[in-house]
Design a binder for these strands. Structure first.
Lengths: 129, 129
DNA sequence: TATACTATATGTGTAAGTCATATATCAGAC
DNA sequence: GTCTGATATATGACTTACACATATAGTATA
């Protein structure tokens, strides 16, 4: 752990460029939308809750707009009820295909992570240091 | 799968921005160097073999230079033997600390992937579609 | 009327990755 | 001899996922 974060209990913050495997919000968003249509704020709360990572609203809304531009979701304004108008997103057929492709890649990634962790443990468990 | 790649047997190529979780080369490089010192070309071959992904030499060499700048590895020229001179890298103590921090993050990431895949399968296995 | 929460959005910058290309040495084919 | 291909390292231009800051507007409640 780096000097900056040593002693902190939030090991997620460690380190500058050091750690984390990225690129996960997009499939996660598509899966949530496959389960049910939702608006951005709702998706943000779901993600913040299920993953224990802080979600950047800017990234989330931009990702949704990009998804719509790419035809993976479509949106409509919900002006019913109280509160500010909300844009409700639902997944398209193309979005579902994307999600399936993503799931395959994630399965492969999981296997790579498992091989990495196995190698890592083997190496640091052995007495040869 | 997207139009561009439908029918191809290489599902890794799919799709433009669609899939793959990134940021994995760095911990993988550090683990390889923790196992034994090596030069760039050798690391490239190890990675291309163990992961079945094509490795970009540009990215690899730039990453190693960055590692050295950050003090995670140190290098020396090997002019022995025949062939072009090669720069041999070995991991430093700081690099080892980084590797440990990375391994923790990767463990957490694996759990997120597993939760995602479980949710995914649950959703698409159920008859409610 | 102040403040907090709900809800969506932009601007700027960085880091990891992609693709193309440049370079030099050496081995073997022809 | 020189041509091709493997070994070996490197730069330039570009894209994208993400981080961090900030803007905006409506609603609820104290």
């Amino acid at each position: 752990m780096c000097d900056r974060h040593r002693g902190q209990d939030d090991s997620r913050a460690c380190c500058p460029g050091g750690g984390r495997v990225r690129g996960f919000m997009q499939p996660k968003l598509l899966l949530l939308l496959a389960q049910r249509p939702a608006h951005g704020y709702e998706l943000m709360e779901s993600m913040a809750q299920e993953e224990d990572t802080n979600v950047d609203p800017g990234l989330l809304y931009r990702t949704l707009r990009q998804f719509e531009e790419d035809g993976l979701v479509r949106s409509s304004w919900d002006t019913e009820g109280r509160g500010a108008a909300r844009r409700v997103y639902e997944i398209t057929d193309e979005g579902l295909e994307y999600l399936h492709a993503w799931a395959m890649n994630i399965r492969r990634t999981r296997e790579r992570l498992e091989r990495f962790l196995a190698d890592y443990q083997t190496h640091f468990a052995s007495p040869s240091k």
